[in-house]
C-alpha cells in the first residue's frame, strides 16, 4: 500500500469524526481543524488503529501533529511487521 492508498483510507475516518466541509490532506494540521481536540484525537487514533490493524505506542501518539504523521506511522508499522 503506498502513501496515497493509506491516506485514502484515513480521509473517510476524518470526515466521520470532524464532519464535512473541511479539506483533508496529508499537510492538514490538528490546529487547522477546530474539532481536532484531545478527545477527538483519541477517537481518531482508535479508528485508524482499527482500520489498519496496528497499535501505536504513547510516544508515537504524542508526536502526531498532521494527518501525514498518521501515514508515516502506518508505513513504519507495516515495515516493522514485514520484517
Amino acid at each position: 500500500m503506498n502513501r496515497a492508498e493509506i491516506f485514502d483510507k484515513i480521509e473517510p475516518i476524518c470526515r466521520k469524526i470532524f464532519g464535512e466541509g473541511v479539506e483533508f490532506t496529508e499537510k492538514t494540521k490538528a490546529t487547522d481543524i477546530e474539532k481536532w481536540d484531545s478527545m477527538n484525537h483519541v477517537t481518531l487514533i482508535a479508528a485508524v488503529e482499527k482500520e489498519f490493524a496496528v497499535t501505536f505506542d504513547l510516544m508515537e501518539i504524542i508526536g502526531i501533529t498532521t494527518l501525514g504523521d498518521f501515514v508515516d506511522l502506518i508505513e513504519k508499522n507495516k515495515l516493522n511487521a514485514d520484517h
Binding site: A30, T31, D37, S38, H41, L58, I61, I62
Partner: peptide
C-alpha cells in the same frame, strides 16, 4: 497552547 493537552501532560 494548541497541543493535545492531556497527552502533553505526560510528555
Amino acid at each position: 497552547p494548541g497541543s493535545f493537552k492531556y497527552l502533553s501532560i505526560v510528555k
